[in-house]
Structure formats: structure tokens, C-alpha cells
Design a protein around this nucleic acid. Structure first.
Length: 551
RNA sequence: UGGGGUGUCGCCAAGUGGCAAGGCAGCGGGUUUUGAUCCCGCCAUUCGCAGGUUCGAAUCCUGCCACCCCAGCCA
């Protein structure tokens, strides 16, 4: 089942647990807090959790870790589900919510109180911090640490009933104020927050903390392997402490892996929000954003993102993956799947002097995949070619149209440039050329082969379109390390081209479908703005260009 | 410097005592009606450093060094 997949420590561990019968079936979960949009880092976590379940014939739950209502909202719950589905995964059973276990958590809190393992603490947030000590000094016991279980129970019930002010008291586990692991210095289990919850409404004036919720959620759901990121490693002893001291129905195991970081991108929620709020990008789904919604709108295929996540591997070492690897996965997928079409970005009129009549040429939609079919393209005496593809004179390294020389028009005839005209500024604004007869699919009979191949669009049937050329959002490999991220934003990350002309077949492109505009790159019909009357394409990623970098 | 982690090619990453996979990037060359794709070849005598054990170490031991995480009533 995993023979074709590279091994990693998670697969090795799970394989072993399954073989030894430690667990009968693998159960994982993707547990986002609905407080923001998912980004490429989450895609990795999703791929790891759902992927493992798929590979080992197990299940993966989608569970919202919604224990902090003040930061959460239904908008995020909706977008997260859409993103997970778009990536191609289906969670096992219904969507789950930590909040649906609140009553159970409350009862378990009472259990700890009765066992003398939890107490209500009246220290203010500031005082609690002072009592906690520092990294090198132990903390001190709270003066409320020795309250009797009966008193704690009464107090906690009053907390639950809304008798106290927000933040006035908390429930804490009684563990060890001198532990070198700060998470064990009597961690907070519940805080008073009379906040409206998107799922439970005003039912609860108290909410459990992450630590008092996560392991128990896993236990309730029968999760076998609770896979999270490295920063939770220090919480594992606490995770296990709750499982050991509560009558839970199942013992999940927490395993940590290194989160995904990619160069030239930023994933902190705060920074992403800053980009949106400052107007640097148009929104959370701007094609330049590393959000799933942004990558989607950019035209990155879900399969390419999944493949990338698999390719970078899963380990425990902090690392920054070169974003070129993501781009490579996108190109690789699109090269195989995207139909080809033609678009001229900077039109230059080409007049064919010896073409008797328009012709309908049949052009393949893919150079090597016949199943992609072909299309009819009108070849007329007035065409558009790209201004960059013509020069009055050039050295032999230039493989495009030159005065007096030949070039192949993609999928059509070989032509020879005869003369050109200039505008008042002295720029070439029209090229006259003759068609070399019988050269569709054939070399010229006189043996003089064309120098190269250029793309074109009929000036008669071509349709003008808006093209958005995107580039990396940041100019430095690690924008997060910058003191002022906005200062390292690439000023040319978006260039809108309004002069483009596309072949008519593209007018009916389905939104979100990606085409390769030959010799230019991959472009996606914008999810929201594209329409037959006003075509809008976003640059997904350019073709590799050894010429552009060599010249 | 209290605790927890991580160090294998420019960037990821397999490898778990038997003689350094693979991908990305890069560099050569070939094919080509996309300067794309594709194809061939090159790219770590060496695994953070220093000792030690062993016939044999990236893998075991010891000691250093570097980097990351933790002092939210965030997750």
C-alpha cells in the first residue's frame, strides 16, 4: 500500500502500530480553528492527515477546534470546508466541532476537581503570569491552590452559571508549579468569556482552553494518531496527563512534524491580514496570496498542490522549501493537462500579401496527448503577432521573424517577412509577409527552413481580453524576517495587460479552466471576472524560459 | 542558558552498523512546428564538529557547536 511512496517517520510509525496491532484502524483528524483562511501550510497538514488515512485504509475527521469564539466565525468554517473539498479530500462522517463536546469537557473538569486535581484560581491574568515564574526560575503556588474540592466545585458551577465577571477566575489543573516544562505549571483549563459562540450561541459563559480540549476531542472521536506541528511538542506531557487522569474512552497518541514553510511567501495570519487590510492585495483569495483560495484563483491545480506536499516529504526538521518546487509541480501537472491555445499580448499587425482567402486550420489542442482533440482556427490575411517576435534585423540567435527571413506560424504556414511600416514614433506598426505555399505541416519545398515558430491570432476573429500577469508577491526569500513586510512587497507582482487578443475558442473557456498560451505560460479563466463578453485570464505560471535568462 | 527539538549536496529529503536514493535548482548535450515538453549526461570519497567503539559508522558511545520552540485566561 505504501511501497511506491517514500518512507517518512509517520508512515513508519503507523505501519508498525498497525502490524503490531497497537491500533486496529488508523484514525487521523485535521483540526483547524475557524479563525482565518487556510493557506499552503494547512494544505500540507491536510495532505498529511487525509493522505495517511487514505494510504492505510483508515479515516480522517474534519474537526473545528472552536474553543475561542471571540476569534472565530461561520465565514471561516464555510471557507475551510470548501478548501478541503477543493483539495480533493472527503472527511469521514459529519463535520465535527469541539464545541459539541463542551458538556463532556465540563463534566470531566468536575471530575478533576473531585479528584483534587483542579482548582478555581482567582489570580488576575497579570498575577498568574508573575506566579508562573520564568524559563529559568520555578513558579510559585497560587494562594488558591489548596481550596477544597467542595469549594472548587461550587465555584466552578458558579463560573458555569455566569455568576462571575469575564476573566475574574479560571479553572486550573493542579500539577507542578516548579516543572521545567512551563505547560505543566498548573495550566489553565477554563476561562470566563461571556462571548456568543457561532455554534453554541450563549449557552456557555466559560470556554475550555486548547490544552483541556484537544486530547479529549481526540479521545472522544477515537483518533489513533493525533498529528500536529512541532510547537505542540512541549504540550504532549500535558496532553497525556489529561488522558491519564480522566475516564476517557480511548487513548490517542500525539505525534509532531515540522510545518511547511516556502520561500518568498508568508503564512502568518497577522501578515496575511495586513496584506489584505492595507490593500496590497485585493482580498484573501487574491491570486498572489498563499491561501488555498488564492492559489486556486491563480490556477494552481489541487492535484499539483497535493503532489508538491508529497514531494517535499514530512520530517521533524525546520526547513524552508524553495517555492520553485511548488512552481515545478504546477508546471508539471499543467504541461500534461492544459490544452494549448494562442494569445498575443502585445499585438503587431501582420499582413499576408499573397493569401487568396481565409482558411480554417485544424490545430491540435495538445502536442502529445491526442485525446485532447483539436480545434478549428481561422487563418486570415490580417493577423496579430507579438511585437517581441519581429525585428527588422537580428543576429542568428534570434529565432523569430526578421525582415527577409522566414518563420513558422504555429500550426499554420511558414511565412517570409517582406517589409514593414513605422508609426510617427518610429516603431514598427505593421509587417508585410508572404505565405510560402504548401507549408502547413510540411517544410518549404525550396528547402529553406524557417528559423523558429511564433504564435498568432487572426485579426478578424481574435477577441480582446484582459490578462493579469502575476509575479511573486515578495522580493526577498524570507519576507517574514523583514522588519516591515510591506517594504519587501514586489511592486511588479501584478501587471494588467489590456492589449491582448485571444483566439475565439478561449471566449468560451470555463471559469477556472487552465490553458497554456503557447510560448507564454499557463493562464486560468478567472473564477469571478471571466465572461464570454469580457474574457479575463490570470497568469498561473510562466513557461520555463532558458532564452529569457540567457539573453 | 530551565525544558523540549533539529542538524545528510544551493533547497527539500530517503537512509536506523555493511560501504550516501530521489526531487527541485544548476550545468552540458540531443530531439522538437511552443527558446516549452521530452531524452541523455554531470552535480555529497561524504553525512554540524571532535574524539571513541567496531573488520566496518551518516547510522552506536562521549564531548562540543549551531539553529528552532516554550514564560496567552491563542491554537
Amino acid at each position: 500500500m505504501t511501497s511506491e511512496l517514500r518512507s517518512n517517520f509517520l508512515r513508519t510509525q503507523i505501519q508498525s502500530d498497525l502490524e503490531k496491532g497497537v491500533v486496529a484502524e488508523l484514525v487521523t483528524r485535521f483540526p483547524p480553528e475557524p479563525n482565518g483562511y487556510l493557506h499552503i501550510g494547512h494544505a500540507k497538514s491536510i495532505t498529511v492527515n487525509f493522505g495517511l488515512a487514505e494510504q492505510f485504509g483508515g479515516r480522517c475527521h474534519l474537526r473545528f477546534d472552536d474553543t475561542n469564539p471571540e476569534k472565530e466565525s461561520q465565514e471561516y468554517i464555510d471557507s475551510i470546508q470548501e478548501d478541503v473539498r477543493w483539495l480533493g479530500f472527503q472527511w469521514s462522517g459529519e463535520v465535527r466541532y469541539a464545541s459539541s463536546y463542551f458538556q463532556q469537557f465540563y463534566e470531566w473538569a468536575l471530575h478533576l476537581i473531585d479528584e483534587g486535581l483542579a482548582y478555581v484560581c482567582d489570580l488576575s491574568a497579570d498575577d498568574a503570569r508573575r506566579y508562573r515564574g520564568t524559563l529559568t526560575e520555578p513558579g510559585r503556588d497560587s494562594p488558591f491552590r489548596d481550596r477544597m474540592p467542595e469549594e472548587n466545585r461550587a465555584l466552578f458551577e458558579q463560573m458555569r452559571n455566569g455568576s462571575f465577571e469575564d476573566g475574574s477566575r479560571v479553572l486550573r489543573a493542579k500539577i507542578d508549579m516548579s516543572s521545567p516544562n512551563i505547560n505543566l505549571r498548573d495550566p489553565i483549563l477554563y476561562r470566563i468569556r461571556r462571548a456568543h459562540h457561532h455554534q453554541t450561541g450563549d449557552e456557555w459563559p466559560i470556554y475550555p482552553t486548547y490544552d483541556f480540549a484537544h486530547g479529549q476531542e481526540d479521545a472522544i472521536e477515537g483518533v489513533t494518531h493525533s498529528i500536529c506541528t512541532l510547537e505542540f511538542e512541549d504540550h504532549r506531557p500535558l496532553y497525556e496527563w489529561f488522558l491519564a487522569n480522566l475516564p476517557v474512552p480511548h487513548l490517542p497518541r500525539q505525534i509532531e512534524f515540522a510545518r511547511l514553510n516556502t520561500s518568498y511567501t508568508v503564512t502568518s495570519k497577522r501578515t496575511l491580514k495586513l496584506l489584505v487590510d492595507s490593500g496590497t492585495v485585493s482580498g484573501w483569495d487574491d491570486p498572489r496570496m498563499p491561501t488555498i483560495a488564492g492559489l486556486r484563483r491563480r490556477g494552481y491545480p489541487a492535484a499539483a498542490i497535493r503532489h508538491f506536499c508529497e514531494e517535499v516529504g514530512t520530517s521533524r526538521s525546520d526547513s524552508v522549501v524553495d517555492v520553485a518546487m511548488l512552481e515545478s509541480a504546477v508546471r508539471d501537472h499543467l504541461n500534461q493537462h492544459a490544452p494549448r491555445a494562442m494569445c498575443v499580448m502585445t499585438p503587431l499587425k501582420l499582413i499576408l500579401t499573397n493569401l487568396e482567402s481565409d482558411k480554417d486550420l485544424i490545430i491540435a489542442n495538445h502536442p502529445s496527448d491526442e485525446s485532447k482533440g483539436s480545434r478549428s482556427v481561422t487563418f486570415s490575411s490580417q493577423l496579430w503577432i507579438d511585437a517581441d517576435d519581429f525585428r527588422e534585423e537580428a543576429n542568428k540567435k534570434y529565432k523569430r521573424l526578421v525582415l527577409g527571413k522566414r518563420v513558422r506560424l504555429r500550426g499554420a504556414y511558414v511565412i517570409e517577412a517582406e517589409r514593414c511600416e513605422h508609426n510617427e514614433q518610429g516603431e514598427v506598426n505593421c509587417v508585410y509577409a508572404k505565405v510560402i505555399p504548401n507549408t502547413v505541416g510540411e517544410d518549404p519545398e525550396d528547402g529553406i527552413k524557417p528559423k523558429g515558430v511564433i504564435h498568432w491570432v487572426s485579426a478578424v476573429t481574435g477577441v480582446s481580453a484582459t490578462i493579469r500577469l502575476y509575479d511573486r508577491l515578495f522580493t526577498v526569500p524570507n519576507p517574514a524576517k523583514s522588519d516591515d513586510v510591506l517594504s519587501v512587497v514586489n511592486p511588479d507582482s501584478l501587471r494588467e495587460v489590456n492589449t491582448a487578443v485571444v483566439e475565439p475558442s478561449l471566449v468560451h473557456a470555463a471559469v477556472e479552466s487552465v490553458y497554456q498560451f503557447e510560448r507564454e505560460g499557463y493562464f486560468v479563466a478567472d473564477r469571478y471576472d471571466h465572461s464570454p463578453s469580457q474574457p479575463v485570464f490570470n497568469l498561473t505560471i510562466g513557461l520555463r524560459d532558458s532564452w529569457g535568462t540567457a539573453k
